[in-house]
Design a protein around this nucleic acid. Structure first.
Lengths: 204, 204, 204, 204
DNA sequence: CATGAATGAGAATTCATTCAT
DNA sequence: TATGAATGAATTCTCATTCAT
């Protein structure tokens, strides 16, 4: 009974989800400019004309993809946050990056390449949005370094994330996943090396 | 005086150079896909129809831009090669990167963003070309590290260049040139820290 | 009444048909190379941009015109096939050709001129397709000659069709429809002259 | 001595000849519309910009090709005219056609395809010119048939030439040189069969 | 909401023709 | 004359967005 009422709405939400997922994937693989709405519609198995009931413009789909990346990031960090040691959390992050080496070698870091492409735009709307996703990652990393008792957590966070972005770009440009492995290992070693002050109890 | 003789040929070569320079600049600022031939023609002050006398396709202009980046790189490394100490050469490279912080913060690393965008293409032609430019930088850096007597020069080269690409991307995404300064400083410190074996005479 | 239901789909199919018809006509009159998509769109009263909804490339429109010629041919031969005597069928074909004398004198044989133009292309795609249409006519004629009991039906079919193509080209080049009449009459006389063996019953 | 004076002019005449020859060949192979001036210039090994000193427009080059075809035809018929028997002359013509079977199978009859293409034009200038070349061939054939004492020489000439055009087109469309051989043989047999009245002395 | 169809504003590319030297 | 270099009008094709049903 309630089905007949909620079904259509549920269907709609499902389509929206499928479109978002398709956009995230296709935009990452082909880039924003080379991706047509038809590409996304096809990947989501939604008729082109119907897309506009969920996303009024192409940019809204890009935004949805950015939101998806944020959600992925949150999910990842939420999982890591369950680890008691901030150092282990950071190492877990690097390991997650290394796990995505093949995709990175083929298409680069999803967020990074998206940000790079959007930053070419004259209007500063979506590029700011892309910056926010990266900032979110930086903030999380910074919290971990701070918890570790490092005096310059923001700087270290930049170093860590820049390392990820750099290795992804190189792996992509050279089409070599091993770069992800090599640099990832280096980052983990680096994290291991970082001295932690005697008593830096975890802050809630 | 002799100009009046070489003028016609010089004119043509000049236009080609202007087009190449314009392409390099505009493609960096707007990205490949968002740049129209008209954009490049306008920037070079050349009628659109005339562009095709020099470059048969848009892709050839992209290729010319890649060649330009290679040339810039060669010029830079040639200058650095005059320094006697390989460590100083590497530090000089990082300083050059830091010198370009404002451009990087606005548009990213010219080569890196180009490579990232081209890597989204299905056909592997120009993206391979872009990879070559980055490889060239890696090779140069590797030579310096080897000359420094380091046991793993290729790995170190990757770390250095990845550091550059990462800091450029972050600086660009966050629109913050200071990231270039901060990370650049870190890289220089890192280079200073690298132990050099007792006697590693420069190899011609 | 039911129209109101099928309208949307019918509309699309209708446009496609209009475009095909327009393409067939205009391509015949102006030739493939001299015909622009705008010409066809105008003749079909369809906005240019919309043409691509139905035909992805200009070549697909040419192909549609070829298919149209095939359909016309099939229609014609289907009608002739109702005649009991294969000789009458062949004569009916020639008469149909003569009936088109004015168009032939102005623009040549639609299929023949199309084939001639397409054969100039380096890539062998559409020209093969054009050859198929002519082959189809040859095959039909061959069947009639065989049914007539002639020992060399394929040779005779070539002679007949070559006669048609030749007279069309001459009529066109000299802008003289009378050539169609004169040569057509000769072909009919020739068909009448052909001896038929005593008992050559029609084969289903 | 006179060389230095006549050389430039001779050179010019030579270039004109080369351009005409190149135009004849390339226009036959690629068709008028698909042939660019650059194509012809390249084939003639003449700089593009220089073409215009010899031919003010592309159409003039087409006209030159038509004139070339006329010249070829005249040369051919002049040779045949040395034969005492008009029937042999006609048979010689057919044999010449058969000799060109491979070219015909690939590109069609040079004059015929040119005429067919030019006839698609709205303006009636070059197409009339093309008609003239064919008319010239018809006239020559007609003279032979008349000399043979046939009562309807014009009709027979049309049949002969139409036979040639038809077999060329079929050979071309089906890419089969054997059609030229088969139909050529038929034409020769046909010419042999034509009864000649008792006393038809050759007319100067 | 759903959907096929429409629309029009570009974009890349081609090429005959002209020009400056 | 000779020639590389313009030039601009045309042409094919793409696509985000909108519309009618």
């Amino acid at each position: 009974m309630t089905d007949s009422v909620t079904r259509p709405r549920a269907r709609g939400a499902d389509k929206r989800r499928r479109l978002t997922a398709a956009a995230t994937k296709v935009l990452h693989e082909q880039g924003v400019e080379r991706t047509t709405l038809a590409d996304i519609a096809r990947a989501a198995d939604v008729p082109v004309g119907n897309v506009y009931y969920y996303f009024k413009t192409k940019d809204e789909l890009v935004q949805a993809a950015l939101a998806e990346h944020t959600a992925h990031l949150d999910e990842l960090t939420a999982g890591l946050d369950r680890l008691p040691d901030p150092r282990d959390r950071l190492k877990g992050l690097v390991e997650a990056w290394m796990g995505g080496r093949d995709v990175a070698a083929r298409y680069g870091c999803p967020t990074g390449t998206l940000a790079a492409e959007l930053d070419k735009r004259a209007d500063g709307v979506l590029d700011v949005e892309a910056g926010r996703v990266i900032r979110r990652l930086l903030d999380w990393a910074e919290r971990q370094f701070r918890e570790l008792g490092r005096p310059d957590p923001d700087r270290l966070a930049v170093t860590l994330v820049a390392g990820y972005q750099g290795m992804s770009l190189l792996a992509n440009a050279l089409r070599d996943p091993e770069i992800m492995t090599g640099e990832g290992t280096r980052l983990i070693r680096w994290l291991d090396t970082l001295p932690a002050p005697p008593s830096a109890p975890r802050q809630a």
